Structures are given as C-alpha cells and as structure tokens.
Computed example of a mutant assay.
Amino acid sequence: MAERQAERGTARGTARRTGAQVQHEIMQLILDERLRPGEPLPTETELMASLGVSRNSVREALKGLQALDIVEIRHGYGTYVGQVSLTPLADGLTFRTLQEAGGYVRALSEILEVREVLEAGLIRRVAPTIPEEDLAALDVIVRRMDARARAGETFAEEDREFHELLYRSVGNALVPQLLEVFWNVFDRVSRVRGFDHDPSPIGTVRRHRAIVTALRRRDVEAAEEALAKHFRNIDTRVARADRRDRPGTNHR
C-alpha cells in the first residue's frame, strides 16, 4: 500500500486541488486498496504524503466523505471506511421535499410515484414465485397491524416491515435500502407537516391483506391492482393534508 501511495503523491505533485478532487482521490484510494467497511484508512500524515495536499485539505475532504457515510471518523482512533449507506440520500430528499418551491406536496408526490413504479415492477417479479414462508410471515404482520388498528394504535413499523419482506425473495440487497430511503422521507415529511395520522387504519390493513391474498393466488394482475389501491390511499392522505394547509380552505 505504501508504494502505491508514494506513486500517487509523486504523480500529482503538490498542485492545489479542490476539495471535491481530494475527496475523489481518497475514494479512489479506497477502491484501489480494496478496503472494506470498517477497515482503517491511512493516517492524515500518510494521506498528505500520498495525495500531496495539506492537512486542512485532507481533513476537509474526510469531513465531506463522512457526511456521505463513505468514511467514519473515530476521534482518538483514526478514520475507517464507512458503511456507505443510503442515509445521505434520504437526508437530501427530505430536505429537498420540505424546501420545494412549488410546495412539499408536489415533491412528496413525485417521490411516491417513483416508489410506486419500483414496487409495481417488483411485485410482478415476486407474484409468481414468492415462497410460502414469506406469505406466512406477511400474514403474521397483517394480523399484528389489525390488532394494533383495533386497539387504536399506529403500526408504522409493521407497515415498513411488510414492504421489506414483500420483496425479500428478489434477492437484491439494494431493494430494501431504496425502500427504506423512500419510507424514511415520507415518514419525516409527514411528521413535520402533521399528516402522519391515518384516518382509516382498518382500511389500510384491508389493503395490505388484499396484496397478500392476491399473491397467495399467484395472481399478478390482482397483486398489482391491490398495490395500486394502496398507493392511491397514500396519495389521498397527502392531498388531504395539502387542502388542510392551504389558507381559506374548508377543512370539513
């Protein structure tokens, strides 16, 4: 590793580079050395020599990469490769949605539309082959939802778990991460804007149960339709919040 770092420093010289360039070079170092999450990066001094930049440039670049979860700075211990999660994406989308000039409802509707397109494609894939054990697990989640709804409780975590489990058999590690991003954005925005309350929890439970029923019959079209109805309900809740927030609107 030391030889490669020296080669990098010699090749670049001491030319002044932007923070973005230094960040890119540190990312390339991680890739070149095949460092995995949790493994240590070279020290600040080693990075200065390797990249041919000042200590401040290294520190600023590392702070930027930390914000992206590409590195993790453990004060007193060093810098390590981060988990490279999609948390920064969720943070960025949440901020974008809340500060959207045309109103948060439009921005949130766009995010919901993307999520619906993703899930519609996924449900077509899983409907013919979803394992019985996954169907049984989905049944258990729906029963928990129903029990909470009848007790006057919310079931946000069960809802999240339902959609993650729904596509488990696809075997794509990125799918649950993307779904979590969309979920977190909707959850954060709904809490900030005050429309996290579901006016018809029993109806929401019913729509989830309809998805499982269609999947159990291996009916692709029925599964797609049930999923679409579920999203229409979410859209209705967002639109209702929009009308409520508009000045002079009748809130009946």
Rank of each mutant, 00 (worst) to 15 (best):
R168H: 05
E225Q: 07
F186P: 00
S109G: 14
G78R: 02
A11M: 04
T18A: 15
Q83D: 08
I111T: 07
E33I: 10
A214Y: 14
D69P: 00
R16D: 08
V189G: 03
A120K: 09
T45M: 05
A239Q: 11
S57P: 00
A147D: 09
Y77K: 13
A241H: 05
G102Y: 04
D134M: 00
Y167E: 03
D196E: 13
L62C: 02
R16E: 13
Y104T: 08
R143F: 11
E164M: 11
V140I: 05
V181G: 02
F155G: 01
S85P: 00
D134I: 03
R8G: 01
A2M: 11
A101G: 01
G82T: 04
T94W: 02
G82N: 09
D245C: 01
R4Y: 13
D69S: 05
Q99S: 14
V192T: 09
L62A: 02
I234M: 14
I123N: 11
V220W: 03
L29C: 06
T249G: 00
E153G: 00
Y80S: 07
P201F: 13
P199W: 09
D235G: 13
L215E: 08
Q66W: 13
N172G: 01
A223C: 03
A156I: 10
T10M: 10
D219L: 13
G102W: 10
R96S: 15
E132G: 08
P37M: 03
L178M: 15
L89A: 15
E7D: 03
H24L: 11
S50F: 06
L174C: 15
E113H: 09
A226Y: 03
A61F: 07
I73P: 00
V205F: 13
T94C: 00
K229E: 14
R243T: 06
A214F: 10
G121Y: 05
D187G: 02
E110W: 10
P199I: 10
R246E: 04
Q83I: 06
L179E: 14
D242I: 01
G19N: 12
V181F: 04
F162A: 11
R8D: 07
E60Q: 09
E7Q: 07
I234K: 15
T236R: 08
H24C: 14
E110T: 10
P128S: 12
K63N: 15
P247Y: 08
E3Q: 12
Q21M: 06
V84W: 14
F186G: 05
L89C: 01
T236Q: 15
R17Y: 01
F231L: 06
I70Y: 12
L179F: 11
L174N: 13
G194P: 01
G171Q: 03
A15I: 06
Y104Q: 12
P40D: 12
G92A: 11
D91E: 12
L122M: 07
S85G: 02
